[in-house]
Each structure stands twice: as C-alpha cells, then as structure tokens.
Simulated assay, not measured.
Amino acid sequence: MSLADRFREHVTEHRNGMIHDLMFAVAWVGLVSILFDFVFTEAPTWVFYMFLLAGIPAYFGFFFSLELAKQE
C-alpha cells in the first residue's frame, strides 16, 4: 500500500473528527484574536500566546464533556 493510499484511507476513516478538530481550532484562534484586538489591546504578547495555549485543555475538556453528555 502506497503512502497516498494510506493517507486516503486515514482521512476517509477519520473525516468527521478531523473536521471537528479544524472547526474548534479556527473558532478558538478567532475568539482569542478578537479578544486581543478589541478587549485586551494593552496586554503583552506572551499573554496572547498563553491564551492560545489554553486552547489545548479547552479542546480536551470540551470534547470530554461532549462525550459525557452523549452517554447520558
């Protein structure tokens, strides 16, 4: 099986998850960018990067709580 075939199979198998991941990432970066463009205009750059980094636990927390809600 070639690399292209394996890639195609992987994308076909995980399509919905990849789309959800991309949508969350775009929404999170958009929200943080809007906050720092209009609300926290005087904040240092490192705070912006910390907010972006906070997207990692937010991602796992959101999808974990979504799974719990689906189970109940």
Rank of each mutant, 00 (worst) to 15 (best):
M1F: 10
M1E: 12
M1K: 12
S2I: 11
S2L: 12
L3G: 04
L3C: 03
L3K: 09
A4S: 03
D5E: 04
D5M: 01
D5H: 01
R6S: 04
R6D: 03
R6A: 04
F7S: 00
F7H: 00
R8I: 02
R8C: 07
R8Q: 10
E9Q: 01
E9W: 00
E9G: 00
E9Y: 00
V11G: 00
T12P: 01
T12K: 14
T12N: 12
T12G: 10
E13C: 02
E13Y: 05
E13G: 00
H14Q: 08
H14C: 02
R15S: 09
N16G: 11
N16Q: 12
N16S: 10
N16M: 08
G17K: 02
G17C: 02
M18C: 00
M18D: 00
I19A: 04
I19F: 05
I19N: 03
I19G: 03
D21E: 10
D21L: 12
D21P: 04
L22D: 01
L22T: 08
L22P: 04
M23L: 15
M23V: 15
M23S: 10
M23P: 02
M23Q: 13
F24W: 06
F24M: 07
V26W: 01
A27H: 12
A27C: 14
W28F: 06
W28M: 03
W28G: 02
W28K: 04
V29A: 12
V29E: 05
G30L: 04
L31K: 05
L31M: 13
V32I: 06
S33L: 08
I34M: 13
I34K: 07
L35P: 09
L35N: 10
F36Y: 13
D37V: 14
F38L: 14
F38G: 13
V39E: 02
F40P: 03
T41N: 07
T41D: 05
T41G: 06
T41L: 07
E42F: 06
A43H: 14
A43T: 15
P44L: 07
T45F: 11
T45I: 13
T45A: 11
T45P: 06
W46K: 07
W46M: 05
V47F: 01
V47M: 04
F48A: 03
F48Q: 05
F48H: 09
Y49N: 11
Y49V: 09
M50R: 04
M50A: 09
F51A: 11
F51Q: 05
L52I: 09
L52N: 01
A54V: 14
A54Q: 14
A54I: 14
G55I: 06
G55S: 08
I56S: 13
I56E: 12
I56K: 13
I56P: 08
A58W: 08
Y59G: 03
G61K: 09
G61H: 10
F62W: 03
F62D: 00
F63P: 05
F63K: 09
F63A: 03
F64W: 15
F64C: 09
F64P: 03
S65N: 13
L66N: 14
L66W: 14
L66I: 14
E67H: 06
E67L: 07
E67G: 01
K70Y: 10
Q71R: 15
